[in-house]
């Protein structure tokens, strides 16, 4: 009994601590961006001519758009590829091949982002440059992000497929459904919630990814006219300028941090809605 009570308190403590860390980060971000939020009128983040913090111009929208474009572009490529890989592992590959393939995907998930960034900077960007200069571009960012979120989507989809009850699949087989019909008609709907949760997680990762994007995206603050134009994401903006920023400039960088956090929060609310949908 006593041990139980102790355990409950330890768990409560741990849970509170985790929640507190999250709250503290939010408070810290608000505190640091306060001078910008109160000193500059908020409309300037939308109406200023450009992002030139040293000249007092704080236009954040091109970076917000670039962040969304890079992430959604990566998801558009990674979701079909990831789903296909997961279907392959669970339904098509021989057990031996499936094991090797899954291990490979796990390895891909373990590669540090800075390695992807380095590869993008020295190999991918020059390749794109041959095709359409300058190489460092929205396209390069999308491709690098795709590689980074692909294993996440594959592995979560794999787990969701594996969790589909065997009875459902056997029934489908007994009804004479083709393998393809069984996957599309039974397995996919049954695994839907797990797959969507994985995609949302991957989206959060793509939104916040910093180093790899910083190295390949070109970092010019502008609305891209094509996928070959360089762009700067919010996270890259913070990493590029924080070490050297002072006063208002610094505070505005924290505002871009807040914006990023708001984006991730929207995603997590979305994830919560799906969760509720499942239980309803």
């Amino acid at each position: 009994m006593q041990a139980d009570r102790l355990l409950v308190w330890v768990l409560r403590g741990g849970a509170t601590l985790t929640a507190l860390v999250m709250l503290l980060i939010l408070v810290f971000l608000l505190f640091e961006s306060w001078p910008a939020l109160t000193g500059l009128s908020l409309i300037r983040f939308v109406t200023d001519a450009a992002w030139h913090p040293l000249e007092g111009a704080y236009h954040l929208m091109p970076m917000l758009l670039a962040t969304l474009l890079a992430s959604s572009g990566a998801l558009m490529l990674a979701v079909p590829l990831g789903l296909a890989s997961a279907v392959f592992i669970v339904f098509f590959a021989s057990p031996r091949l499936a094991a090797v393939y899954k291990r490979l995907i796990e390895l891909l998930a373990g590669i540090p982002s800075v390695v992807f960034g380095f590869w993008g900077l020295t190999t991918l960007a020059p390749l794109i440059n041959e095709w359409h200069p300058p190489g460092a571009s929205l396209l390069a960012a999308v491709l690098v992000l795709t590689l980074m979120v692909l294993p996440m989507i594959t592995l979560t989809a794999y787990t969701a497929f594996v969790a589909v009850p065997d009875a459902l699949l056997r029934n489908a087989a007994a009804l004479g459904l083709s393998r393809w019909g069984m996957i599309v008609g039974v397995a996919l709907p049954a695994a839907r919630n797990g797959i969507i949760a994985g995609i949302i997680l991957a989206a959060a990762r793509a939104l916040g990814e910093t180093m790899a994007v910083l190295m390949v995206a070109g970092n010019v603050v502008q609305y891209p006219e094509s996928i070959f134009d360089p762009v700067r994401t919010l996270a890259a903006n913070i990493a590029l300028e924080m070490a050297y920023a002072m006063d208002d400039h610094r505070a505005v960088l924290f505002v871009s941090g807040l914006l990023l956090m708001a984006l991730v929060m929207v995603l997590s609310v979305l994830a919560g809605l799906f969760e509720r949908h499942r239980h309803a």
């Binding site: 900077l121 020295t122 960007a125 020059p126 440059n129 200069p133 300058p134 190489g135 460092a136 910083l214 190295m215 070109g218 970092n219 010019v220 603050v221 360089p230 700067r232 990493a239 590029l240």
Partner: peptide, 16 residues
């Protein structure tokens, strides 16, 4: 067309 952070990144960008 490209904005970089440190010297190393600048050198990698130009050599690429």
């Amino acid at each position: 067309h490209v904005i970089i952070g440190d010297n190393a990144q600048g050198i990698k960008t130009v050599t690429g």
